[in-house]
Design a protein around this nucleic acid. Structure first.
Lengths: 210, 210
DNA sequence: CGCTTTATTGAGGGCGGTCAAAGAGCGTGG
DNA sequence: CCACGCTCTTTGACCGCCCTCAATAAAGCG
């Protein structure tokens, strides 16, 4: 089961609009949805799967800006041009709509875009704290909490691999792996395969996330 | 002379509005403008001086979200509640306006707020790359370029101290200091006192910023 | 089952952090 | 004007967290 994030209420309006006017697109794992520098004349909403945004330094270092789940708008806050590229983390489908179609659209759909941008900013700012001031262990703990469904039992299957996690958290895959092993040893989480986690001690995870 | 950033064109509308309806407030160095968790029912625009936004971890670690110069709107993208606190970097004056007054205001003022939020997001995303993937040297080089006026000669006097720089760049004051010394030794910059810099080799700085 | 891809584990090194001391800037008051 | 004290910055020595490189192991997949 792919990770599902409860869609926010203000997504309803834009969701409706995109369902009516948007085009459904399918992407393979790691396939590019749009590229860095491309004109941002479309709005992208995840239907199924997971998308990521990323920026690169000239020598190949990568920073992932965020992960996007069903109902989310991908890199919606960009100006005329995408400053991030976007790819599919796993086989995914998105709905795509021209911005021009949007400008003639209902006011509450525009409001939904505004709200999505605001949330995107808050997410980015939260991430600044993580990247600037948290230790490797705190970053991984924060990441797991970020992905964990609220339900007790806290089981989840993530779609991204270690490299994606590392580039999101500003670490290396080895460090991410070590921290996960460490959390397992401390009986804070349980793992079943590479991408299935179960949170045993949410309280410990929360205190570790600082 | 305080650092001046060319105000963006879409600031004109909101600037006008705030001049007419806003209240002028003066803040001492390090004085709080608003606190983390406070209701975000006002819009703040810097008139003179410099402001910063910051978030804290429970043990006191601090991450600065950004610096704000004359014409800038401080933490304008926040929702109902400020997720950052804001303080004056040096003695500063701001103009403050209730959001409620804004909701009844001209459409282009609202548009200005929207644009400011979008730019804030872009700044934050750029900063993610810096914090997640750049080395100490690259961070300091990026910071200097970010502050440098475009004018040739590239002299500038910054208002923030080393601690502010460090908490912005996700480093310690010692590391920031060492990197500045290193850049001086490489004849990339020249320093006159603690807070006056002169960029001698912008090209080198740009390649260092990666 | 064999092959590829991805994750884990280990050893070692380096970048940046920590702690401590010395130095520079700067206002205040004698 | 200089002496004094305070704050902030710089410098140095050392340490530790995380990165790098390399080998092994596990998953995924035909």
């Amino acid at each position: 089961m792919p990770v599902e994030v409860a869609p926010c209420s203000d997504h309803a309006a834009i969701g409706d609009l995109m369902r009516r006017l948007g085009v459904r697109m399918a992407y393979a794992k790691d396939e590019e949805i749009f590229g860095q520098g491309e004109e941002a004349d479309r709005v992208h909403m995840v239907l199924t799967g997971v998308a990521r945004t990323a920026r690169f330094l000239s020598d190949g270092r990568r920073q992932i800006g965020g992960f996007y789940y069903p109902g989310d708008l991908v890199d919606v806050g960009s100006g005329a041009v995408h400053r991030f590229s976007a790819e599919a983390v796993c086989p995914s489908t998105l709905r795509v709509l021209r911005r021009s179609a949007l400008s003639a659209a209902a006011l509450d759909a525009k409001r939904a875009i505004w709200e999505a941008t605001r949330r995107e900013l808050e997410r980015a700012q939260e991430h600044l704290l993580l990247l600037g001031r948290k230790t490797a262990c705190e970053r991984v703990a924060s990441f797991l909490l970020e992905l964990a469904p609220i339900e007790p039992g806290g089981a989840m299957t993530v779609q991204m691999g270690r490299q994606d996690m590392a580039d999101y958290l500003g670490l290396t895959i080895e460090t991410v792996s070590r921290m996960i092993t460490q959390l397992q040893g401390g009986l804070v989480i349980e793992c079943d395969g590479y991408r299935s986690f179960k949170i045993k001690r949410r309280d410990v995870l929360e205190s570790l996330a600082a």
